[in-house]
Design a protein around this nucleic acid. Structure first.
Length: 418
RNA sequence: GUGGGUGUAGCUCAGUUGGCAGAGCGCUAGGUUGUGGUCCUGGAUGUCGAGGGUUCGAGCCCCUUCACUCACCCCA
């Protein structure tokens, strides 16, 4: 039996009602805040991710699905969405007509990690990106949107962690201080961190190894080395969140695994998913548009882990169920099947969710089936009813039965359902 | 990439010192002619994850392998 690839799963019909609910809630919210949908490819040239995410990151170093196509070009299944959205913004010179763009996209991402609770090799994200706005208000607004989304989905117990990583103006100075500190602690750091010292020293700040954690306890924080502009920017973000009652903590260890972030970064954490605590994350990436051959352009975005969000929402007590059929048609006999088929089609085309059974099983067993499907009404069309011009429409909840004539029964059903 | 746990019916799981492969749920057919939910009775369904070994005999013991799962790591 052929099965799905490791870490890759089907989202089955029993779960898609929930997924659609989440998706609708999110897109409705994003629409109110002025976001438009963009649909981006699942494959890109490998170079796009290497240049944007960063050569030395875990994602690029060991997690991407990269392969040569038939002509030898290196392609990669997207491990995240931001790079593609930025690429599209630059490629189509979207900045020319209006540099301010708010876009969202929903779809699968691919990373070859060891699967675990809340972590899949194909996983889904809802991404939102804003171009052309440098004001800190938009930073606060993105966090507000995430907060509102989770609230609308009925979730509690999620906490926003925020930090500021500084900008090209203040970061070199901070890196110098950090490197001096790391040099001091060199004998206590793990191999990974020693390697990171050269490539991306910021990443040492969030290393989870116990030895590193201890050594890094009094490490310098980016927050203490922000330039005036960065400090004011971060203060405004916090101020707005306070005024809008968004619950957050400042977390100086929040660095994030992609190189392109600057200034504000944030993650929304949950305790409901074991070790996979991040439900959403994002930050500002003011240098990335230019880095990908576009103009100097501020930008910021977030990604929501759809699978994780769905798992948390699923834990709520009120399950989201698919809509049951309004009408279930039970035909008894060949003539009834033919008529029933025509009526069923007509009802469905009129927007009434209708099911019918063609098997020729007994009335009793089909009543059982109607009950199992949760049908609102059952239309019993037997030889007898057709002959006597008296079809039976039974209300499954009240057990009340109406008699319908053979003349346009669909019309009669429609008026009963009103 | 590194560790731990688990693989038996569609699902959740029992299965004794190695001796006929089970239960509940679900599915299905009935319970006086053609009316559901509760109840009662019957029925179908297994490569015991796969391959090898030990043994008269393996779901059970040994080896190999695969998958799932949790954690490290990473992140959504």
């Amino acid at each position: 039996m052929i099965q799905t690839i490791r870490g890759i799963r089907d989202i089955l019909p029993q779960d898609t009602a929930l997924w659609q609910h989440i998706e609708e809630t999110a897109t409705e919210l994003l629409d109110s805040f002025g976001f438009q949908e963009i649909r981006i490819p699942i494959m890109e040239k490998t170079e796009l991710f290497a240049r944007s995410i960063g050569e030395a990151t875990d994602i690029v170093e060991k997690e991407m699905y990269t392969f040569p196509d038939r002509k030898g070009e290196k392609l990669t299944l997207r491990p995240e969405a931001t790079a593609s959205v930025v690429r599209a913004y630059v490629q189509h010179k979207m900045y020319a007509e209006d540099p301010i763009r708010k876009m969202y996209t929903i779809g699968p991402m691919f990373r070859r990690e060891r699967p675990q609770k809340g972590r899949y090799r194909q996983f889904y994200q809802i991404n939102a990106e804003v171009f052309g706005i440098s004001a800190p208000y938009i930073d606060a607004q993105l966090i507000l949107i995430l907060n509102a989304l989770f609230k609308r989905l009925g979730l509690s117990g999620l906490k926003a962690h925020i930090n500021s990583l500084g900008c090209p103006k203040c970061r070199p100075d901070f890196q110098k201080t950090l490197l001096a500190f790391l040099e001091d602690k060199k004998d206590k750091l793990c191999d990974n961190c020693l390697r990171r010292m050269d490539k991306n020293p910021l990443r040492t700040l969030d290393c989870k190894a116990p030895g590193c954690r201890e050594a890094m306890a009094d490490a310098p924080s980016t927050l203490e080395h922000l330039c005036l502009e960065c400090r004011e920017h971060f203060d405004t973000v916090k101020n707005m969140l306070d005024q809008q009652n968004v619950d957050y903590v400042v977390d100086k260890t929040l660095v994030r695994g992609l190189d392109y972030y600057s200034r504000t970064t944030f993650e929304i954490l949950t305790t409901a998913l074991g070790a996979q605590s991040a439900v959403a994350g994002g930050g500002r990436y003011d240098a990335l548009v230019k880095e990908l051959d576009g103009p100097e352009m501020p930008a910021i975005g977030f990604a929501i882990g759809f699978d994780r969000l769905a798992e948390i929402v699923e834990q709520l007590e009120t399950p989201i169920l698919p809509k049951p059929p309004a009408v279930f048609i039970i035909p008894l006999g060949e003539k009834a099947k033919e008529l029933g088929y025509l009526w069923a089609s007509e009802l469905s085309l009129a927007g009434i969710k209708t099911e019918m059974n063609y098997s020729g099983r007994s009335l009793k067993s089909l009543m059982k089936r109607a009950n199992k499907l949760g049908a609102g009404h059952v239309l019993i069309a037997g030889e007898k009813e057709i002959e006597e011009n008296a079809l039976i429409l039974r209300d499954m909840a009240t057990k009340e039965q109406h008699t319908l004539s053979m003349e346009n029964p669909v019309k009669q059903i429609l008026s009963y359902l009103k």
